[in-house]
């Protein structure tokens, strides 16, 4: 683990070079860190505090304020289910429940095997396809609760092929 920490901190320091000289860049820096690691590791936060000269408490307060930032690593397959208004009135809620039932975990958590992570999002901007589910960047439109097992199975297979 010690090696991980060194690697994470080294990578983070490199990412911060361009943000150090720009004002108000904390959120942008955190975006870049999450983009690289999938979440904002504590080890990165330490480096951000040091490099951008911002107290840890403030970084933590920003991270927990915004929905986008994650403090723990999400599963390898991120299932984003839209619960924006258009998706909601077209049955988004039942789609959420179907995925929760299929994976046996509530939204906002990762399955025990670390493979799937379900998150509820507010509007993905393709309301014409409502209800919408996005899995690792692939969009599924007009999803019904019956599609949930199929989508999960599809990704289980994909991940098995990739040897995850």
């Amino acid at each position: 683990m010690a090696d991980d920490k060194v690697k994470i901190q080294e990578d983070t320091r490199k990412m911060l070079v361009k943000w150090k000289t720009k004002r108000g860049s904390l959120i942008m820096a955190l975006h870049e860190i999450q983009g690289a690691f999938g979440y904002v590791p504590w080890d990165s936060m330490e480096v951000v505090a040091e490099e951008l000269k911002i107290p840890m408490a403030q970084i933590y307060s920003v991270l927990t304020f915004y929905n986008h930032f994650k403090l723990t690593a999400p599963g390898k397959v991120v299932i984003s289910i839209c619960d924006g208004t258009a998706c909601h009135i077209k049955g988004g809620q039942s789609v959420i429940e179907a995925f929760e039932k299929e994976l046996g975990v509530p939204a906002g958590t990762t399955t025990e095997d670390g493979l799937f992570y379900i998150q509820i999002v507010r509007c993905l901007g393709c309301c014409g396809l409502a209800p919408v589910v996005v899995v690792n960047g692939k969009t599924y439109g007009r999803v019904t609760p019956l599609d949930a097992p199929k989508i999960v199975a599809e990704w289980r297979e994909t991940m098995a092929k990739e040897g995850a």
Partner: peptide, 11 residues
């Protein structure tokens, strides 16, 4: 644009 169900600005 935070209104869930609207995507004018996005487009």
């Amino acid at each position: 644009e935070g209104d869930p169900g609207a995507y004018m600005d996005s487009c």
